[in-house]
Amino acid sequence: MPQMNLAEALIDGLIWSLRADPRATIIGRGIAGHGPEHAAEDRLKQEFGSRIIDPPTSEAAVAQLGTGAAMAGARPFVHYGTAVFAYEAWNQFINEAANIHYMSNGQLSAPVTFHLFHGIRGGGGPQHSGSPYAMYANNPGLEIVLPTSPRDAKGLMRSAMASNNPTIVIQNAQLLGLTEDVPAEDYSIPFGKAVVKRDGRDVSVIACSRSVIDALEAADILEKEGLSVEVVDIRTLAPLDVDTIVASVEKTGRMVAVDETYEICGVASELIASVVTRAFSALKTQPVRVGRPMTPVPFSPPLEAAVNPGTQKIVDACRRACKR
């Protein structure tokens, strides 16, 4: 099995998608980012150069162009780079793409994939560190995919490109270098299937995106203190696999929800609500929420670190949930 980093795996998933479906096209460049993994994009350019276009900086129009193309039978993959640039296309994501199927009474769908890099990346400051997926999740009609490993990235990308719905594939740019063995052949991973990344007995950490990696690190630290932490990666926020989450919390009896979006109306809040409203009696202790505090992301490195819901905050939250 070849080793791939997450960027290479994403590209591999895209390549399989373009091979499988002649309607698939690419709008955008820098799909593997502009960091050390950027060269992963070369394979895509070599095999499918004629199906890639490099758009001007016109995010709103590009989003809706992608949506229109999708409505008319194409399967565009639209790359934005830093997620905040897609704020320019808010209406196009939310009010157009997401509503098309419903408004047409099912006549039409908009199978467009939007690809974004989110999150605190080091010196991004208030305008380049946004993690908009909780805001997207507040709108029906969009599928939201958050790959955290190379294997998942490839299989989920394949499903995104095959999906009939507008789909947002959004990942923390700092995960692009994660490396593991990835099957060389074509495969997909279905949406709505969370995965238990680590088995544990004492507390369930339910997480997505970057926070999954931090939670696994926190679990290692807590293991040395004798706490057994289960880590669940939701993988897709919409659809959300509540069954797997609830099953984990029923097993451990304690819950920490952690995610990089804001604490208020963020992903962690929704995760807790979905457990509390379905399995309240399974909880032995009050669930703990870890998210970004309600401040723009500051530029200064120490202040930036203070808003990041990283490993240490997860460790502390698990101790609280377990009354340690």
Binding site: T57, V84, F85, E88, G123, G125, P126, Q127, H128, P296, P298, F299, S300, L303
Partner: peptide, 25 residues
């Protein structure tokens, strides 16, 4: 105060509405 960095320097004393991280912002 170190909140903004290069891309969002605002200097109202001198009528500078700011550098801006968003193209066209």
């Amino acid at each position: 105060g170190g909140r903004s960095g290069s891309m969002h320097v605002i200097d109202m004393e001198r009528g500078n509405l700011g550098t801006n991280g968003i193209v066209g912002g």
